[in-house]
């Protein structure tokens, strides 16, 4: 490209003769397009119709469910008869499962508060925003830290007998180890993909796995006195 400017900035003082101008194209050229904005559609009807179809499909699914299965209803509430086990709604069962292991202040207050705070602050930390691979810099050192944290966490969980939470922890630690051993030049696409993941990805995945496992255990595997039961044997 030539260094000569294709246009000059300025404006004509005679506003009556000419409207406000930002640029005068001085040569017989047009402005060069460096980046084209991508294709766009009109929200109406392009997006709305698709959203409507999606919502309708959901409604059909839920209506089918409602026709096929009745919502549970038990006997009249009776404060004198505690069902065994008394369970919270399913989305709190992970929490209730934690209460089984940890003191109430930790499981019932500290952990949920921390989770909510952590969720809120996610977009305000650059480390989350840059999305750089965890192993891009100081890979070996970071792996050591990860191993130490994973072992410490496992010991902590084992100390409180939280074996069900230990399983996803160990699995994710192993996968992280595998990721650290990979690089952006790895032969398998899977390993390249694993390698590229940032720290926030690993933490969130660990958290979601724990939440899912604890909720599933609380929902299906807990019987009288919060004892372990196999759902298929009852």
């Amino acid at each position: 490209m030539s260094d000569d400017k294709d246009f000059v900035a300025g404006f004509d003082s005679n506003a009556r003769k000419a409207p406000v101008r930002v640029a005068f194209v001085t040569r017989r050229t047009s402005p060069q397009v460096k980046v084209a904005d991508e294709d766009q559609v009109m929200t109406h009807p392009g997006v709305f119709l698709r959203v409507a179809v999606a919502v309708e499909l959901l409604t059909i699914a839920l209506v089918t469910l409602a026709l096929a299965w009745d919502a549970p209803l038990e006997g009249l509430a009776d404060p004198m008869h505690t069902p065994n086990p008394a369970k919270a709604p399913w989305y709190f069962l992970g929490l209730q499962e934690l209460l089984h292991y940890f003191p109430p202040v930790l499981a019932g207050v500290l952990i949920p508060t921390l989770v909510v705070l952590a969720l809120i602050v996610i977009p305000y930390f650059n480390i989350n925003i840059q999305a750089e691979s965890l192993w891009a810099r100081d890979g070996a050192k970071r792996l050591r830290i990860v191993v130490v944290v994973a072992v410490a966490l496992s010991v902590f969980l084992a100390f409180f007998d939280v074996w069900v939470a230990l399983v996803p922890t160990v699995i994710i630690a192993v996968v992280m180890f595998l990721a650290a051993r990979s690089s952006s030049q790895s032969a398998s696409a899977m390993r390249r993909w694993l390698y590229s993941k940032p720290l926030s990805f690993w933490i969130m995945t660990w958290f979601l796995a724990e939440a899912a496992v604890l909720t599933a255990v609380g929902t299906f595997f807990r019987g009288p006195g919060w004892s372990w039961v196999w759902p298929w044997r009852s």
């Binding site: 209803l73 505690t82 069902p83 008394a86 369970k87 709604p89």
Partner: peptide, 12 residues
Amino acid sequence: WDQLAFWAVTVG
């Protein structure tokens, strides 16, 4: 206000 409701909320 059935047993399920009452005890779930009590636990919560």
